[in-house]
Nucleic acid binder design. Structure first.
Lengths: 190, 190
DNA sequence: TAAAGTTCTTATCCTATGTTAATTTTAATA
DNA sequence: TATTAAAATTAACATAGGATAAGAACTTTA
């Protein structure tokens, strides 16, 4: 019997350790949804044991774009930081032992960042922003075709189309310049 | 004449402002390399004016995976943080006005993170780590075929292959389960 | 062990992209 | 403005991947 086909375990008692770094600990079965797409994340998780995936719904099919394993931290960081709906669902793939902390308990971290001297604060915030952009770009690669990525770029970031040579945009979209040229022709005659 | 086809400007004098957030300011022509793939980043940049791309060399061809514009911060953050060779080149697409700070001047930021209480430090470091993973995954999408991504996964993260059902791995690689099944067959008979 | 359900594989057909090369268009330089 | 160079488009061909459906293999449950 492989790890992932073990019988789903019942929830165990909460075995909180008030002095540990993460305050809550629980075993959950495979297939447990920790954060659901569209909801606002209230917890951040640390995986003691098990495997988790992050996925987005694309026309009714779930598209996985990230896996997490032991000793990795997992949360929908933009949702968590900004109180906005999560772009994706976080779900266990195997039965897991998880630690988590509630947003309110972690909030001091986020607040303190903004209290740092200006430059430091800016530096850390820019890392968060960059991460968010990378994630969105990655999700676009797993759910969209090159043509869809081009159309999104045209709609969402027209300044890139205007200011950047086609050859660079092509590779950015994951295709050759020749193919992007064909896509543009196809799109313009629609 | 479009922005990007303006004549390349000569380097101007350094107009440092000791009391500004970023200490150095310079105009550079289009096509200027700010950080070269394989070198260790010593500076972080802020774009006052212009456009920058990040690209990786793939068999002699450059593959762009990110653009940066006005008021965005740019650096090879892993190279910067860990003194390791940069995975990519950072190059101006248009003539740019840039501000930068040297690593040694910013080092207090990074150091201070590690002096934060344990949990805060861990949280911020995990954001850096996550960003690095997103970036690598993104680069893999722009430079590799699905088959190459599968082979890399097999080599670099065999635990994912072992522990995760094929249907999830397929979408993670950007293909359908049917296609991944074909790829596995193709690969196993080589 | 048998039955049912799920996951994975295989087959067919179609289409979009890669590759290479030639041509046209646009931009840079004298 | 003329010349040259670079970038973008187009054409032709080969191929990998998407969609759908059917079959095989594997798991779970009774």
């Amino acid at each position: 019997m492989s790890d992932r086909t073990k019988k789903r375990l019942p929830f165990l008692e909460d075995t909180s350790h008030p002095h540990s770094k993460f305050y809550h600990r629980k075993e959950v079965p495979a297939g447990t949804v920790l954060i659901r797409e569209g909801e606002i994340a209230k917890k951040a998780f640390l995986i003691e044991k098990g495997c988790i995936r992050a996925w987005v719904n694309n026309n009714g099919r779930d598209i996985t774009f990230q896996f997490f394993f032991e000793n990795e931290a997992v949360s929908s960081s933009e949702s968590f930081r900004k109180n906005i709906p999560s772009l994706f669902t976080i779900e266990t793939v195997e039965p897991c032992i998880l630690h988590w902390i509630y947003k309110k308990d972690l909030e001091t971290v986020v607040e303190d960042v903004s209290k740092l001297p200006n430059l430091k604060s800016k530096a850390i915030i820019s890392v968060f922003e960059r991460q968010y952009q990378y994630m969105r770009q990655l999700i676009s690669f797993v759910i969209d075709t090159p043509e869809q990525r081009y159309l999104k770029l045209l709609l969402e970031k027209p300044h890139i189309i205007r200011r950047v040579p086609l050859q660079y945009i092509a590779t950015y979209l994951g295709v050759t310049p020749v193919s992007l040229s064909r896509i543009r022709k196809r799109v313009s005659t629609m």
